[in-house]
């Protein structure tokens, strides 16, 4: 492992099919030089954490627009811990009301992007906060 490229799993938990945003973000991250794996839709927390470990990624980016984030995000963090994969950075985006953001961050979501954020801001954040495995100590 470790060609120095950041590997990111982009995942869509829950049942909503709104994938316009997630696809645009996945493409922008790929165009920025990261290795991007997109899970497709309707993923359970178990499926997402399994894929992340199998694919040996450095980060998981979650997108949700259905309002189920308070149920699903903490579950993903919990599974990550159970699988001993706390070094995988988890960030998220979607329709997340302001008052839900602090509890989700406290639960272990590193960053939450809400509408109006530019693709460049997401790319810059990943560069700053995610380290590829090869370079990690």
């Amino acid at each position: 492992m470790g060609n120095g490229k950041i590997r990111i799993l982009i995942a869509k938990p829950g049942l909503d099919g709104h994938d316009r945003g997630v696809k645009v973000v996945a493409r922008a991250l790929r165009d920025a030089g990261f290795e991007v794996i997109y899970t497709g839709l309707h993923q359970t927390p178990e499926m997402i954490v399994n894929s992340a470990i199998q694919e040996d990624v450095d980060a998981i980016g979650l997108s949700i627009l259905s309002g189920a984030h308070n149920a699903l995000f903490p579950r993903i963090i919990q599974l990550r811990r159970e699988r001993g994969a706390d070094d995988i950075v988890v960030f998220a985006g979607g329709i997340i009301p302001e008052e839900d953001i602090a509890p989700l961050r406290a639960a272990g979501i590193a960053e939450i992007f809400t509408p109006g954020v530019s693709l460049q801001q997401i790319v810059d954040w990943v560069r700053e906060h995610v380290t590829p495995r090869g370079v990690r100590t």
Binding site: G14, T44, S66, G67, A68, H69
Partner: peptide, 22 residues
């Protein structure tokens, strides 16, 4: 809501957190 759209009852495991939301 999403579980209804996907053909799941509200007590299905995949409906967790989605019931009545959208």
């Amino acid at each position: 809501d999403m579980p209804t759209l996907m053909g799941y009852d509200s007590d299905h495991p995949r409906a967790l957190g989605e019931v009545g939301r959208e």
